[in-house]
Amino acid sequence: MGIVLGPNRYGKAEVRLVRVARDDAVHHRITDLNVSIALSGDLAATHLSGDNSAVLPTDTMRGIVYSFARDRPVGEIEEFALRLARHFPAAYEPVHTARVRIQAYPWDRIDAAEGPHPHAWSRGAGTRYAGAVCGPDGTQVVSGIEDVTVLKSTGSEFHGFLQDRYTTLQPTSDRVLATSVQARWRHTGTEADWADSYAQARATLLRAFAGTHSLALQQTLYAMGEAVLAEQDGLAEVRLALPNKHHFLVDLAPYGQDNPGEVYYAADRPYGLIEGTVLRDDAPAALPELPW
Rank of each mutant, 00 (worst) to 15 (best):
residue 16 R to L: 13
residue 17 L to P: 02
residue 31 T to I: 13
residue 31 T to V: 14
residue 34 N to H: 05
residue 37 I to S: 00
residue 40 S to K: 10
residue 42 D to E: 14
residue 50 G to I: 13
residue 51 D to W: 08
residue 52 N to M: 02
residue 57 P to L: 10
residue 59 D to N: 06
residue 61 M to N: 00
residue 64 I to E: 01
residue 71 D to F: 06
residue 79 E to I: 11
residue 88 F to K: 01
residue 99 R to I: 15
residue 102 I to S: 01
residue 103 Q to F: 05
residue 107 W to F: 15
residue 110 I to F: 00
residue 113 A to E: 13
residue 118 P to K: 06
residue 118 P to M: 06
residue 125 A to C: 03
residue 125 A to P: 01
residue 126 G to A: 03
residue 128 R to I: 11
residue 131 G to E: 07
residue 135 G to N: 07
residue 142 V to L: 14
residue 144 G to K: 09
residue 147 D to G: 07
residue 149 T to F: 09
residue 154 T to N: 12
residue 158 F to Q: 10
residue 158 F to R: 05
residue 166 Y to L: 14
residue 167 T to Q: 07
residue 168 T to M: 06
residue 179 T to K: 06
residue 180 S to W: 03
residue 184 R to P: 01
residue 186 R to A: 15
residue 187 H to E: 09
residue 187 H to V: 12
residue 189 G to E: 15
residue 190 T to M: 08
residue 194 W to Y: 15
residue 195 A to C: 03
residue 196 D to R: 13
residue 197 S to E: 10
residue 202 R to D: 03
residue 210 A to N: 10
residue 218 Q to P: 05
residue 221 L to F: 12
residue 222 Y to G: 02
residue 224 M to Y: 14
residue 224 M to I: 13
residue 230 A to F: 09
residue 231 E to T: 04
residue 234 G to R: 06
residue 239 R to Y: 08
residue 240 L to A: 04
residue 240 L to I: 10
residue 242 L to G: 00
residue 252 L to S: 02
residue 253 A to Q: 13
residue 255 Y to F: 15
residue 269 R to I: 12
residue 270 P to T: 13
residue 273 L to V: 15
residue 274 I to N: 06
residue 282 D to C: 05
residue 284 P to A: 13
residue 289 E to N: 05
